[in-house]
Amino acid sequence: MTRWLAIAALVVAVAVGLCSTRPAPRAGIAPQVTQAHAAIAELTTGDLLVLAVDFDPASVPELGPFVRLTLDIALMRGARVITVSLTPHGAMLAERFLREALASRKATYGRDAINLGFLEGRSAAVHLTGIPLQRMASRDHAGNALGDLPLAAEVSRLADAASFVVAASGAPGAFEWLLQGQGRFARKLVIATTSIDGPQLAAFHASGQISGLVAGARDVAAFADIAANDPRLRGDSDAVGHLRELAAQMRAQRWAHLALVLCLVAGQGLTLWRGRKKGAT
């Protein structure tokens, strides 16, 4: 019976969150989110951004808006983007996000951006970003020869990028880029991750190894909020659209969290009540 009550509580909480149109209360913006936005928005024409998409489809609601917004800002600033993935499903998602961003910014695949796709080898794959690009990979995700893509000819190696931006959940992902990418090549590293993985990476932000950290839907919403109000982006980014999308997801998430906490409290109360009943008999 109690199991069904818990499940019903969660279903009701998520349904209320999805149906509600009440605006999300504004919480303060964490400094690590401001730093993450600054690192991406300060890209200038011709800069190279390496974007690693290392999350699975289940994390798209949390991290998808961040990747879309990052691509949008980078292309708007005239930066060149190369996406890579340490997981096969990440490469598929990167292709989808990149095609959407290129279409909305009227940018050209091969000249403004390339999706290198899945890089096998976890830490060793990140390590290999230090060798010339043409030796590192011969084809992109879609099977095009890198020699036919103008951007590939202009880039000597991925490790020379202005910034590494990693959107990751679980492993392989953030830790591989942190240990092999940031440490070895001393690049700026911005990490976006899920609420679950955020606390594990907080120590690396505190030490200065991570330039900006965006953890969970709340931080992604804050990131979109900053982008929407950044005068450098001249209100041209799609940050407002992403904010609307995130608001609905956050409503469902916070009601689900509330249901979970209520179940925790109810569970303690149930134990106390049963204990007293047992004592009385």
Binding site: S195, R218, W255
Partner: peptide, 9 residues
């Protein structure tokens, strides 16, 4: 949990 996803008010 409540702090990471602020509740209704």
């Amino acid at each position: 949990m409540l702090g990471r996803a602020p509740a209704t008010s």
